[in-house]
Design a protein around this nucleic acid. Structure first.
Length: 285
DNA sequence: TTGTGTTTTATTGCCTCC
DNA sequence: GGAGGCAATAAAACACAA
């Protein structure tokens, strides 16, 4: 905000080759809101507190030669300036800033409703001593500024949300890796244990009991501690390792309906082996 | 005083709605 | 087709540092 403006009565900047009158007008035009209005700023009798004489661009020439005579009477008395006056009014039209009070009034009006119906426009223009077009332009520009501010706010909000999500995502990734490692370790342990058991039973036997189809309630599939929730398998498609680990048809627990239990003796000790290990059963028979 | 950056006022051209 | 809105832009007004 280096260009931020603090307008005050003491501002004697004469930009653009201002003559005495324009300097006077400038100091007049933008009174500090904390200071009393300059005595030259004379309200019209019967007008609202926000009726202004305005600046050159604010008042029409008719206003100047009509209702606003009091302002120029003051000037004439002080400056003896008929020639200056002529010179001033023959200058090409320049931009004039609205007074602090005009802007405040417009701001309040904008807060109430940021769109301007024709009636309101003329009413405001009348109240402020501006051209209706000026009021319309002010609202137009004000809406543009509001939109810019709003965009900045929205951007900040989105940025904050993004950062939060990013942090959450990072934490979830870490947690996922941790759980993955845990699953690997436990799976390895289990596989090793099952292998040891089956090797022992293999040495001892010839299977003494005919193979039995597991009953539903005792199904190893339903009792296997690391079997994933079937409804959940699509949620982590990135996790190929986990998918491979938990693929019931290819690893550890072949689907019951996919296997012929009458053929190789799928004894209870067969569950928990990879399908490739079916060779083991063939050789055992 | 001057140069530079910011803000405000105003214009222009295009678009939409009635 | 005219009115009004919006985006882009020009230009004046202003603040401030050097």
């Amino acid at each position: 905000m280096a260009g931020g403006r603090v307008v005050s009565c003491n501002n004697t900047n004469s930009v653009g080759g201002s003559n005495n009158l324009s300097v006077l007008l400038q100091s007049q035009r933008v009174p500090s809101s904390s200071e009393p209005m300059d005595p030259l700023f004379i309200p019209r009798p019967g007008s609202s507190p926000y009726s202004f004489f305005g600046t050159r661009s604010m008042v029409s020439f008719e206003d100047v030669h009509g209702g606003n005579r009091s302002f120029f009477r003051s000037f004439d008395e002080e400056e003896n300036g008929d020639e200056d006056l002529d010179e001033y009014f023959h200058q090409p039209e320049k931009k004039r800033r609205l007074t602090v009070d005009q802007v405040q009034f417009l701001e309040k009006s904008f807060e109430v409703e940021n769109k301007l119906e024709p009636e309101r426009k003329t009413q405001l223009a009348k109240e402020l001593g501006l051209q209706p077009r000026q009021v319309a332009i002010w609202f137009q520009n004000r809406r543009a500024r509001w939109k810019t501010k709003q965009l900045e706010k929205d951007y900040d909000t989105l940025q904050a949300n993004f950062n939060t999500l990013k942090a959450d995502y990072g934490n979830l990734l870490k947690e996922k890796d941790k759980l993955k490692q845990e699953v690997l370790q436990l799976t390895d342990k289990l596989v090793m244990k099952e292998k040891n058991n089956s090797e022992l039973s293999d040495v001892n036997t010839v299977c003494q009991e005919p193979p039995q189809k597991p009953v539903d309630s005792d199904s190893p599939r339903s009792s296997y501690p690391f079997e994933p929730d079937q409804s959940d398998t699509s949620q982590d498609e990135e996790d190929n390792l986990s998918n491979a680990l938990f693929q019931p048809s290819s690893y550890i627990f072949p689907k019951l309906e996919d296997n012929d239990y009458s053929d190789p003796p799928a004894s209870s000790c067969s569950y928990g082996f990879h399908v490739e290990d079916h060779a083991f059963w063939s050789s055992a028979y």
